[in-house]
């Protein structure tokens, strides 16, 4: 390579340019329609996509709507699709992109548009209302609840969820089939159900609800929810598949049904499904 072709070391990291001119191709519009608009500006070293979007807002398009809050990947507000991939804008480095090509930013596809990059995610809040609350059994004689650490370790992962709804957005069951929103809770809420179902103190059994109303059978295990989760929750392997297996035990496994029946008859208290 000719030495003149190289960029100065301070302007380039291992993935791509950290500084220099970049073009953001941002979808602008509302429920009446919209289009892409290009904004070319300087990116500075260490910036994330949200930083540059904010500078578009302050320098080029004061009316650009974007939802954000913590800029630290913990509030789940700035979910969008960057070059077609669902991501948090605050956790996507500009240096991840090669120079030259515009970086496309669009709102989450699954939810109704409000304006520009802001979507109406209230579908999720309506589903949340359908999740039965945590219902512990009777307290210990000393008036407390006790759990062993190993009983509770497994569900800690599920509590990392920041409700960015990227998993809901990428799930093709509702992304590509709007009508399924009436019958399907989505990966975020399967994580919530898993946290409740596997909780050592919870007494609610939601398997019937999961099968009949929350549509766990619609999930076909394509694992996109796991791929986009910014908290690296193993949504499919640790939440959805275990729930599916519990539904199988309750509905499609006569052997498990017989074992449960015998256990109940012999008075053995079962802690498993």
């Amino acid at each position: 390579m000719n030495q003149n072709d190289r960029q100065p070391a301070e302007t380039q990291d291992k993935n791509g340019p950290a500084t220099g001119k970049v073009t953001l191709r941002i979808w602008r519009g509302d429920e009446n329609g919209g289009e892409f608009k290009d904004y070319t500006l300087d990116a500075q070293e260490g910036e994330v996509v949200l930083d540059v979007v904010h500078r578009v807002q302050s320098e080029h398009a004061g009316d650009l709507s974007v939802r954000w809050n913590c800029k630290a990947g913990k509030c789940g507000s700035c979910s969008a699709e960057i070059n077609g991939v669902p991501k948090l804008m605050c956790m996507t480095r500009m240096s991840d992109f090669s120079s030259g090509e515009p970086i496309t930013i669009t709102p989450m596809r699954t939810f109704p548009i409000i304006r520009d990059l802001v979507t109406d995610v209230s579908f999720n809040y309506e589903i949340a209302k359908k999740v039965p609350p945590f219902t512990p059994g009777p307290k210990e004689p000393d008036g407390t609840y006790r759990m062993a650490q190993r009983d509770i370790d497994r569900i800690q992962e599920f509590h990392k969820c920041i409700e960015c709804f990227l998993c809901q957005n990428v799930c093709h069951v509702i992304r590509d089939h709007e009508e399924n929103k009436a019958n399907y809770a989505g990966p975020r809420f399967f994580v919530r159900f898993a946290a409740l179902e596997m909780h050592p103190l919870n007494t609610n059994n939601s398997l019937g609800l999961l099968k009949e109303e929350m549509g766990i059978g619609y999930c076909n295990i394509t694992k996109c929810c796991t791929e986009v989760c910014p908290e690296q929750i193993h949504i499919t392997d640790n939440a959805i598949i275990p729930l599916k297996e519990r539904v199988v035990t309750a509905n499609y496994d006569p052997l498990a049904w017989l074992v449960t029946k015998i256990r109940r008859k012999t008075g053995r208290n079962t802690s498993s499904t």
Partner: peptide, 9 residues
């Protein structure tokens, strides 16, 4: 929740 509302992008 009204379904079928316009989406962005």
């Amino acid at each position: 929740v009204q379904l079928g509302k316009p989406r962005g992008g």
